[in-house]
Write a protein that binds this DNA or RNA. Structure first.
Lengths: 205, 205
DNA sequence: AATAACATACCGACTGGTCGGTATGATGTC
DNA sequence: GACATCATACCGACCAGTCGGTATGTTATT
């Protein structure tokens, strides 16, 4: 087992992803991160010059995690790129029924707190969000061609729009404390994408 | 004009709205809020038992501010409720071209940081967001009737969806540091609403 | 004179970060 | 294979400063 052998650096990144997602970057102390990771403060500052640097590393890890998770999900087997896009959106919508701590976005949370004060962290969050969003572009473009869809919008802007709606859904979910507002908004997004591709807004059974 | 007579309480709320919006709730210290308000710490804790209580007061004030601002905007003169709805969305989209600090949402920022740790603040943010979003419901329902629009969605869910997209746009704007991603996403929202109401997605000149 | 509205000085807990030190293992030399 | 050398990973006590909050005033209003 690599349980004990896991290096402090990796354990700290995992701890940051978990705790910062729940409490935010500023509200999470270095001591808390060390405790969660089962690591001493000395180890922390051996691997990361500052707390912000751990935040940046966590943002990078987050992108990799997201692209792994959604890149290997079952709906990716669909042959039609539009079905893959829709599968992605429905998968994300269904995640919203679970506990808040399991679907919210680390980097969306962090960038809210850091955009004006910690430029390096802001840049890392930007790279993380865009790096995930842009994985959708190829399928959107392929779907557009396949289904002969035109319109006054770019694949990139639609990819980013999906992320914006999801980020907004997370905020509603956090405010709503388990209500259904987040799911409703994801369904509006799905309805929009279906309409863009000339499908009936509600799937027929 | 209550300029000079402005009591410490009001100045503190105004300071909280301004500074918390830029730096987040946790990153803003009580001393900083006092300095911004031109008020001493004694005055702070005379009016607010804790820092969280000022946050709650700021969330309440924010809702009032938003409803005033958007309730008295020029597009509200339109006779057709759908035009009022569209006017609202275009107005909000156009705000996204200004500086980030002028269009972002205080309560959207605060709820991200507080949902898990400060339940009272979370509840105040919920009331603020919902309290503004629901001002759209009457116009949405009236527009629906007037234009004979049906569909598998409620006015309330669409009102909340607009807020979710805007919140998501703010996150993109913060991450993007002045890029156009936020505006693009607002345009997707407008396109969606037009499609829901059977209008051509791009307005004709 | 009583009360609300402010001001000043201060407190202990906690913050991010430092620093001298150790344990372990790889590398080179003979 | 023995030994010196070096680098990496990690430890935990410690520091100066900041935090939210309190205690004890002083001043304005009624």
């Amino acid at each position: 087992m690599a349980a004990r052998k896991a290096p402090a650096k990796d354990k700290l990144i995992a701890a940051a992803v978990k705790v910062v997602r729940e409490k935010g970057f500023n509200a999470t102390s270095v001591d808390e991160l060390c405790a969660e990771a089962g690591v001493t403060k000395g180890a922390f500052f051996h691997h990361f010059p500052t707390k912000v640097d751990l935040g940046i590393a966590a943002a990078d890890a987050w992108k990799v995690h997201a692209n792994d998770l959604f890149g290997s999900a079952p709906y990716m087997d669909h042959e039609d790129p539009f079905d893959r896009l829709l599968g992605y959106l429905e998968f994300r919508r269904d995640m919203l029924d679970g506990p808040v701590a399991e679907f919210t976005c680390l980097v969306g949370t962090m960038v809210q707190e850091s955009y004006d004060t910690l430029p390096a962290l802001r840049a890392a969050c930007h790279a993380s969000i865009w790096g995930h969003a842009l994985t959708l572009v190829d399928d959107i473009e392929a779907a557009r061609e396949r289904h002969g869809v035109t319109g006054d919008w770019t694949a990139e802007s639609l990819a980013l729009h999906t992320q914006a709606v999801l980020q907004g859904a997370f905020i509603l979910a956090k405010a709503d404390n388990g209500g259904g507002a987040a799911r409703d908004t994801a369904n509006h997004l799905i309805r929009y994408v279906r309409m863009l591709f000339n499908l009936p807004p509600v799937p027929m059974e």
